[in-house]
Computed example of a mutant assay.
Amino acid sequence: MATPVVVDSIRKAIAVGAPIYNAGDPGGCMNTYVHTALELVEKGAASEGERAALQDAVRRALEAGSKDEGAWIMRRSFDSILSGAVAAREAAARVAASVGPGGEFEVLNFEMGLPVAPRWRILDDVIMGGMSQSDGLTYDDAERAAVFSGRVTTDGGGGFASLRSDDWSGFTSLMAARGVRMMVQGDGRQYKLNAKTDGDYDGVQYQYDFTPPAGAWTQVELPFSGFKPTFRGRLVANRPPLQGQQIRQLGLMVSKFTSDGGVINNFRNGGFRLGIRYLRGFV
């Protein structure tokens, strides 16, 4: 989050500039915002990332094709700072610098139990008439791991069981990552890691298939460039590649379908079990 001085200055500028804009004077609004931004930069009240964001916004606003466009460039920059997005980018940059290329940092650790956040909810095929059933995210003391387990079946026309996290701010750290690594123990089945770029229940999600060996703990590496955009089991065309900074929800799934919409040849009805000790971002 931005410092109190920066937050107070920006809010005061918006309180003055917004009515000026609404009164039909976008130029006056833009000038108010530009003056505040330059003042914050010159006084050194803003962080390095905030100064860079404000200077860039001022440059683009002054070069904009209209005063209206310039006012909105400044306002979006202010909103980004107030929302904490700039601070999050700075934190992610510090993480990336601390671990170096190829290094990794912790996002979720289940070895000491289930963290309080994020929370996980069950999303099985019962929503479409299926009969699969997952047990939620449980904990195995002996294995020191979280467990995604249950029964998956195509009976009733379904064929998938899944979990999804809530919209969690802790995933912001993935802004610094090129992908994730997980320490998992499988059962021979193919699983998916799902990523959503919004907080909605339904909609497009990005998926990555992985098949860890049965009965052995192994680390799987899932680069964001390999995630595929899907909607209800089908590929979605013309979607940009997944980036860590977009991720707001993560999920696990076992399904009769691959992430590109194909059918898994050796899919079988019955129990499933995936152990997870940690999820880390890698740079």
Rank of each mutant, 00 (worst) to 15 (best):
L114D: 12
G157C: 10
Q133F: 01
A117N: 15
G129A: 01
R144M: 07
D140A: 02
V152R: 01
I127W: 10
T153M: 13
P115K: 02
S132F: 01
R144T: 01
I127T: 07
F148N: 08
A142T: 05
T154E: 14
T154G: 06
Y139R: 00
R121I: 04
A146F: 05
W120S: 11
E111A: 07
M112T: 11
A117W: 12
D135S: 14
V147K: 13
R119G: 14
T138C: 03
D155S: 14
M112R: 15
A146K: 10
D124F: 11
T138G: 08
M128G: 01
Y139E: 01
G136C: 12
V147M: 04
E143W: 09
S149R: 13
S149P: 01
D125L: 10
D155H: 13
L137A: 09
S132R: 08
G158Q: 06
R151V: 12
F148G: 11
R119A: 14
R121W: 02
S134A: 13
R151Y: 07
D125P: 12
R144W: 03
A146R: 06
M128E: 05
D124N: 14
D141Y: 06
G157A: 06
A117G: 09
R121T: 15
L123C: 05
V147A: 07
V116L: 14
V147C: 06
V147W: 02
R144Y: 02
G158T: 07
D135R: 15
R119S: 15
D155Y: 01
D124A: 00
E111L: 04
S149N: 12
S132N: 05
G130M: 01
T153Y: 12
S132H: 01
M128T: 13
T138Q: 13
V152M: 00
D124G: 10
D141H: 03
T138N: 04
D155P: 00
W120H: 05
M112W: 01
V116P: 00
S132G: 09
V152K: 01
Y139L: 06
V126N: 07
F148R: 08
E111D: 02
G129F: 03
D135H: 13
